[in-house]
Amino acid sequence: MNNDLKKMRPIWFFVGMMLLTIGIIVLLSGVYYLFFPSNAHTVLAHLHPSLWWGFIIFLAGIIFLVSNRNVTVD
């Protein structure tokens, strides 16, 4: 029997990876536009939603990843 088949990662691990990566991209774009404001003006831009929303996504990604780092399913 192939041992690999016993080591399937749960979906929550992939959700964590996806959210972590997207969170980092959104957060970094928020930091970038904080110093080099975009020409594309958006309503409520002064609240810098990319910064805090990106951080929330990043945090969610970390939680999913850490809580499933050693979890495998049959």
């Binding site: 997207i22 991209i25 959104v26 970094l28 774009s29 928020g30 536009y33 975009s38 594309a40 958006t42 309503v43 409520l44 831009a45 939603p49 990319s50 929303w53 990106g54 996504i57």
Partner: peptide
């Protein structure tokens, strides 16, 4: 209206 670059992609 609300999403700046980066968030628009999301």
């Amino acid at each position: 209206r609300y999403y700046p670059p980066g968030l628009i992609g999301l």
